[in-house]
Nucleic acid binder design. Structure first.
Lengths: 158, 158
DNA sequence: TATTGTTATACTCTATAACTATA
DNA sequence: TATAGTTATAGAGTATAACAATA
C-alpha cells in the first residue's frame, strides 16, 4: 500500500497515495455497471436472508408460486428465466423443507401444479419481512430517487 | 401449453390462452430487475466473445491492466471487486495464453507488476472490436436513451 | 414429434481456509 | 502482525445432454 507511491504536487511528502485505477473502455459498458450494483444488492440480500437459508432464486420462486398457485414448473421457469433442470432441483429442495407441494395437474399428466403449503406460507411471511428490511437498505444505499428511476427504467426487462 | 386455459370474455373459444404469471412482491425488488437485464447483457457478451474464449471477468481484467500497467494483483482485484484467490487463477490462465506478464515489482518483493504482452495488446484489439459490436446490440435492446440514463444512474457504483 | 420433468456432467463464479514469503 | 500471492475445497448458478412419460 505504501509502494509505487504517486506524489501529487501539493501533497505532504509523507502521505503516500496510490493513483486510483482507471477503468479504461470498461467505462462504456452498461453491463459492467449493472453487474456491480446487482452484486452488491444480492450480497446484501443473501446476508439478510442467511438465517432462513434462502437464496435469491428460491425467494423469487416462492413469490411467483404464491402469486400464481397451481401453475406448472415450465410456466414458473419461463417467467423467471430459470432453466427447467435447475428448477427441478430447486423445487426438490423446497419440497424437502415442506414449503411447497407438487400436486397432480388434472389436465396434463406430465405436469405438476405447484402450491405453497401452510408451512410455506408461514415461512414466506417471515422471509418477506427480512426481504423488506433488505430492500429498505437498498433504498438507502442507492438513494430513494435513483431507486425509483432505476425501477422505472428496468421494469420492461423483468 | 393448452391446458389450464383461461377464457377471456371476448376471446375466441378455440384460442386457449394462459394467464400471464404475476411477479408478486418481486415487483418491488430492484435487485430482481437489475439481475434480469444484467443476465441478458452478459449472455450476449459471452456469445459475442465466444470465438475468443473470453469471459466478462477476463475482459474487465485485461482492460484494467491496459489502462493501469504495472499495478499489482491486489490493486486490480480491489478495483474490480474480484477476490484475490479467484484473480490469481484468472491471471494464470491469461499468462498461459501469453496475453499478460507478471514482472517483479521492484518496490515490494511480495507483489507482481502486471502488464500486457504484445500478443495481449493484439488480442485485446480484436476483443474490443467484438465487445463494441456487443455494446451496440445492448443499445438497440435497451434503447439508446434508456441506456444513457442507466449509465448515468449506475456510474457511481462502478 | 414435441413437451414435462428428472438426473447427470461440466464449467464459471463465489466464499473460505491454509499456506509461503515478504513487509 | 499484516499484506501479497498461491493452492485447495465446497456451494451456487448455468449450460448441456440423455432419458421416461405423456401429449
Amino acid at each position: 500500500m505504501t509502494t509505487q507511491a504517486v506524489r501529487t504536487k501539493g501533497a505532504e511528502p509523507d502521505l503516500q497515495m496510490e493513483a486510483p485505477l482507471q477503468l479504461g473502455e470498461l467505462d462504456h459498458h452498461l453491463g459492467y455497471f449493472l453487474r456491480r450494483l446487482q452484486v452488491w444488492i444480492f450480497q446484501d440480500f443473501i446476508a439478510a436472508l442467511k438465517e432462513k437459508h434462502v437464496r435469491p432464486a428460491q425467494y423469487s420462486v416462492l413469490l411467483v408460486i404464491k402469486a400464481n398457485p397451481g401453475r406448472s414448473q415450465s410456466a414458473i421457469g419461463r417467467r423467471l428465466n430459470i432453466e427447467r433442470a435447475r428448477l427441478a432441483r430447486l423445487l426438490h429442495d423446497l419440497e424437502k423443507r415442506k414449503w411447497i407441494r407438487r400436486r397432480a395437474s388434472g389436465c396434463d399428466a406430465r405436469s405438476h401444479a405447484l402450491v405453497l403449503t401452510a408451512d410455506g406460507e408461514r415461512a414466506l411471511g417471515q422471509i418477506k419481512t427480512l426481504a423488506a428490511k433488505h430492500e429498505a437498505k437498498v433504498g438507502e444505499y442507492v438513494g430513494q430517487k435513483r431507486r425509483a428511476e432505476l425501477m422505472r427504467l428496468l421494469r420492461d426487462f423483468g
